[in-house]
Design a protein around this nucleic acid. Structure first.
Lengths: 218, 218
DNA sequence: CTACTATTCAATAGATTAATTGAATAGATA
DNA sequence: TATCTATTCAATTAATCTATTGAATAGTAG
């Protein structure tokens, strides 16, 4: 039964692309916005050659696409289904791998108290002007797309900008994904400042891939 | 940033479990029903020791669970989320890997003509008694769970049982999953016999994990 | 044309993986 | 108790993977 064997081998190629932590990290960066190779090398901390090789592997199985503009080669995620696959991979890991929960519990100690906000609920409250949404990702990622009405406060600017935030209103923070530490820290800081704050359950890529409205900056 | 690194490494462990065709095949068998090690070795064509090692890898990342009953160790899929992950892995592969489409086109030449039936549509028509549903998997898999009202006709029995099928009624066939050849072949045979036949879009595991009703035989 | 930048290519060493083989173990049966 | 069965363990080989290094290539700018 060669067909069955060949077919599973093909599916396994995609699994293999997801079998390395550095590639998964690169995919998370690309889920925020397209980036060039050395841009990705910088944020991931890998060498340029190594980053390039990982990107080529991802491209070979169709998880990312690329195009050359001038000197630079820009890579981007191939589609929303890839974002969904990554989301499900994280969820399955979290549900079935004890080590993941242990890590989350160790590093994100505030997590249990946080009760993340669901996407649909947030959208309604944003429309009614009842909530301030802050995007705690780096500005370049915010610029490439963010939640409607969200204001951008990168992690290192939060402290000095606390005074600009309406302390009477509820604040919801989000960043790259459900395990991105930026939003956990932000919520912690906001609460310490006496502001009612909570975290969005997922990050920007999941919001976007769910087909919810997205705003661009130029 | 050790947390981020460690977390992606954990997710990568699950990816790694999905990075081998034989393991994916084993997971598909387990998605039908729980099975013992040498049972799986037989259906997959792998050696027992090799099968055992693959199963241990799957268990280590929580994709399957096991329990020993008497001499035998029975393995089963850890949850519906694992079935969904496999489904999405297949879909992403099919959408982004040209090789998959080429394989499907080569081996399942009838595919384009088939227009698979959607699950919800089928459920309605089954309730109204408008359609005969046949499960073309091996009997042991059928026994462990099948669509409501489906009759079991394993591939090698179809020819001799063609005369038992009401040729006035529409027939829908399904098997292990969207790429399982049994149902393609069955539809072909049925059509050649002048029966109006089509394929269910997915297989039994996807039906079950979608929360749709399932019937058991004893 | 030359120098520079961003990316890819090619070769390499060390680590990991898959499958095989044969032995070890746990539980059932005679 | 001795034997049989199902599974796991341990050791091995060949193949593959990751990251590093330095060179090659394509495009840009002076």
């Amino acid at each position: 039964m060669s067909f069955k064997h060949d077919l599973f081998s093909q599916f396994a190629r995609v699994g293999k692309a997801l079998s390395n932590g550095n590639r998964l990290e690169i995919l998370e960066y690309l889920a925020q916005t397209e980036r060039s190779v050395d841009d990705l090398a910088k944020v991931s901390g890998l060498s340029v050659a190594n980053t390039s090789q990982h990107l080529q592997q991802l491209r070979q199985v169709g998880l990312v696409t690329s195009s050359k503009i001038g000197l630079k080669v820009y890579y981007r995620i191939a589609g929303d289904d890839v974002v969904n696959l990554l989301k499900l991979l994280r969820e399955v890991s979290e549900r079935h791998l004890a080590d993941v929960n242990q890590l989350v519990d160790t590093y994100l100690t505030v997590k249990d108290e946080l009760e993340p906000v669901a996407r649909e609920v947030l959208l309604e409250r944003v429309k009614q002007g009842l909530v301030t949404v802050i995007d705690v990702r780096p500005t370049e990622e915010y610029m490439a797309g963010h939640l409607p009405g969200a204001i951008n406060i990168p992690p290192d600017e939060l402290e000095q900008r606390l005074k600009d935030i309406d302390s009477q209103q509820e604040v919801v923070a989000y960043c790259r994904g459900p395990h991105c530490v930026f939003s956990f820290n932000a919520v912690q800081q906001l609460r310490n400042a006496g502001i009612q704050a909570s975290r969005l359950e997922d990050g920007f890529p999941e919001w976007k891939s769910a087909g919810l409205p997205v705003e661009l900056s130029d």
